[in-house]
Simulated assay, not measured.
Amino acid sequence: MRVTLRSLVAAFALAIAVFIAAPVSAQQPTSVNPTAASVKEQQLMQALQAGTPGAGSTLSGRITIPDASAANLIQPQGQAWRAFHQGAMHWVGAIAILGMLGLLAVFYFTRGKIMIDSGLSGVKILRFSTFERFIHWLTAGCFIILALSGLNVTFGKFVVAPLLGEDAFATLAQGAKIAHNFLAWPFMLGLVFMFVVWVIHNIPNSTDITWIKQGGGLVGGGHPPAKKFNAGQKVIFWAVIIGGGLLSLSGVYLLFPASAGGVLALQFWNIVHGLVAVLLIAMMIAHIYIGSVGMEGAADAMTSGEVDLNWAKEHHSLWVEEELAKGKALPPGAQPAE
């Protein structure tokens, strides 16, 4: 009897407690947002503009670690950099690369493939040695992979990711990043070799003016005289040396950001790296076109190293004269053409 009475009293007390607590629990939110009261970016930007330092300054907080730069919460220049990197950079790259592809397509369908006017002579002349071809393909091979992996950073999430899916794209991007970081070094080495070996042939001279005035034989008729490298090739050479040098310098800063001299300097070199890269890629597309499908006999120069004598006389007549004068232009048993 006592046990039953006690049980009834305990159940009654529990019911009263639940009844009293119910209104209180009903007032509690069903879910809690721990960041609901946190400071938003817009509030920080307003504080930055209205604060004592004035607009354009860095908004800093308080820290207890040795790295003073970690106190910077907002740097307005970073907002401008992000806007450029995620906006204007995409447009510059797309216009430069797609624009070049469009121009080459128009050129091909209007001008067609540039043929050897006098036909193949059957006589070969050595244009580039084995070492020259090696440094060309070392630099070119690295540049192609660097270009593709770099373009993946800028356009990959818009173009490649939807095709491959997130997991496959993440694996590809990781591998591309590793290739980009490591192939930068042989690319730089190739630039040094190219400069040392070919700079003497790429100093501008008066024949370049004539070549430019006649459109290099690419437009109109005739073939203007040229030495080992014509004016167009000299433009490519200096674009590769100067542009490649800027890519190398900015790339080293991006690989070792502590050496860049601060966040603003790092953002500057990041922009330089991206802009120079897309412009150089556009130029290399034109170079690849002319050196392959765009001109008959041109690809032989960097494959076997020997080109047809008639091709050489049409596009590099002054260089052919120099080689014939040295008596080492033609293979044994070959007769010089008139």
Results as ranks from 00 to 15, higher is better:
M1D: 10
R2Y: 12
A11Y: 07
A13Y: 07
Q27N: 03
A36Y: 09
Q43A: 08
A47E: 15
T52P: 15
P53N: 15
A55K: 15
T58D: 12
D67L: 01
L73S: 03
Q77R: 15
R82C: 02
R82P: 02
A83S: 01
A88L: 10
A88R: 09
H90A: 10
A96E: 13
I97H: 05
L98N: 14
M100G: 02
L101K: 08
A105I: 00
A105G: 03
V106F: 12
R111C: 03
G112S: 12
L120M: 13
I125C: 12
T139E: 12
A140P: 09
I145R: 07
L146V: 10
L146P: 09
G150D: 01
L151K: 08
V153I: 04
T154H: 03
T154Y: 07
A161T: 05
L163E: 09
A168C: 15
F169D: 07
A173V: 01
Q174R: 15
Q174Y: 14
L183E: 11
M188F: 14
M188A: 15
L189Y: 11
L189V: 06
V192D: 04
F195G: 03
I200P: 01
I209P: 02
G215D: 01
G217Y: 02
L218P: 02
G221M: 11
G222C: 09
P225Y: 03
A231C: 15
F237Y: 14
I242R: 07
L247G: 02
L254H: 02
P257V: 00
V263K: 15
N270I: 00
V272C: 00
V276D: 10
M283Q: 09
I285T: 11
A286M: 10
Y289P: 01
Y289G: 02
A298N: 01
A299D: 10
T303A: 08
W311T: 04
K313L: 07
L318Y: 13
P332F: 13
G333C: 08
